[in-house]
Computed example of a mutant assay.
Amino acid sequence: MTELDPPNHVEFEWDKDWHLTFELKKLEDNRTEFTLIRSGWYTEEITDFVQPHTAIREHMKGGWEKIVKDKLPAYIEV
Rank of each mutant, 00 (worst) to 15 (best):
D70P: 04
V68A: 12
T43P: 08
K66R: 10
I46H: 04
N8Q: 04
H19P: 02
G63N: 00
P7M: 01
R38P: 03
V50A: 08
I67C: 10
D48H: 05
D70T: 14
G40I: 04
K25M: 13
T21S: 05
K16Y: 06
I46A: 03
G40T: 06
F12Q: 11
N30W: 05
I46N: 05
E65Y: 10
V10L: 14
H53M: 00
A74D: 14
W41T: 09
T2I: 13
L36A: 08
M1Q: 05
E44N: 13
W41V: 14
E45D: 11
D17M: 09
Q51M: 03
F49Y: 10
L72S: 01
E13A: 13
E58H: 01
K16R: 09
T47R: 05
V50I: 03
G63M: 03
E65M: 08
P52E: 13
E28D: 15
T32H: 10
D15P: 00
N30Y: 07
E44A: 15
E65Q: 13
K26Q: 14
Y42A: 11
D15C: 02
E77A: 12
K61T: 14
N8A: 09
H19S: 09
E65I: 14
E11S: 15
E58F: 00
K66D: 11
L20G: 01
G62T: 13
L72H: 03
E13L: 14
E33P: 02
L20M: 10
K16N: 07
N30R: 08
R31V: 04
N8K: 10
E77Q: 15
E65F: 12
E65W: 07
P73Y: 09
Q51F: 01
I56C: 09
T35C: 05
Y42S: 06
K25L: 11
K25Q: 14
R57G: 09
G62F: 12
T2L: 12
G40D: 09
H9D: 09
D5P: 05
E3R: 14
E3W: 08
G40K: 00
L4P: 06
M1E: 03
L36T: 08
F22S: 03
L27V: 06
L72T: 00
V68E: 02
H53D: 11
